[in-house]
Simulated scan of single mutants.
Amino acid sequence: MRMYQRIGAIGLLLFAVACSTPSQSTTQPAGGTTVATSPAVSLPLSEEDRAAAPDLTQKFVDAANAGDSAAVAATFAENARFDSVGRIYPSRKDIMDRFLDPEVIEAGGKYEVTGTRWNGDRYVVDYKFTTGGGGSEVFYYEFLVRDGLIQDVIGRYS
């Protein structure tokens, strides 16, 4: 009898944990594919942040294209999160050290903006990215801007 009570207690505990874990929402980009979004901030975007997003994301591109790591880092909040096609970087330091410095700045990569739009509170920028070796990729970043800094980015191939 005790074995059944323990199994029942474990099942109840697992159910409670599953119910209390924040779920991810989804978004549908222009290509029609549903992708997971960050369980990030759900507060409405302020008018100031909505107005700042285009200039801030352009500042990010200009700094990255100039190879200015410090200026790129300055566009991100300290606790920013970046989801690059499922690779999650949970802080500005990780974003720079593990992703943008080695894969963009040190590689001599260049972003070319090919389009922009809003997806709810996220400012979406479409890019053609050319590597220092001449290769290219097409993708988009969905930026969430809060308090004048990039708080969260979701990057996906188009």
Rank of each mutant, 00 (worst) to 15 (best):
S46A: 13
A30P: 02
D147C: 01
P22F: 05
A107S: 12
S23L: 09
G86Y: 07
L56V: 00
G31S: 14
A16Q: 01
D83I: 00
I150L: 06
L149V: 14
R117H: 04
P102K: 03
I7N: 11
C19V: 05
T116D: 11
Q5A: 13
E142G: 08
L43H: 12
G134M: 05
G115E: 07
G134I: 02
P90K: 02
R92C: 10
G32R: 08
G108Q: 07
E106L: 12
S69I: 09
C19N: 13
F76S: 10
D49H: 00
F76Q: 09
E103V: 09
S20I: 03
Q24L: 13
D83E: 09
T130P: 01
L149D: 06
L43N: 12
G135M: 06
I105P: 00
T116C: 10
A73I: 08
S38E: 00
M96I: 13
A66P: 01
V124I: 14
Y140T: 07
M96H: 10
A63H: 01
F76W: 15
P44I: 02
G67P: 01
S136W: 04
G148Q: 00
T37C: 05
S69N: 06
K128R: 14
L144V: 07
E103C: 12
G120K: 09
S38T: 00
T27C: 06
I154W: 11
S84L: 11
S46Q: 06
L100P: 02
A63R: 03
F82W: 14
G132T: 14
L56A: 06
E142H: 06
D147N: 15
V17S: 02
R50K: 15
G31Q: 11
D55Q: 15
T37L: 08
A107W: 04
A16L: 13
D94K: 07
D152S: 08
M1E: 13
G31T: 12
R156D: 11
S23H: 09
L43A: 15
Q5I: 05
D49L: 07
L144C: 00
F15R: 04
A51F: 03
D147L: 01
R92V: 10
T26M: 13
R6H: 15
Q24S: 13
V145C: 08
A53R: 00
V104H: 01
D62M: 07
G148P: 10
A74V: 01
S38I: 07
E142P: 03
K128H: 10
G32F: 03
Y123C: 04
D97I: 01
V104K: 04
R146T: 05
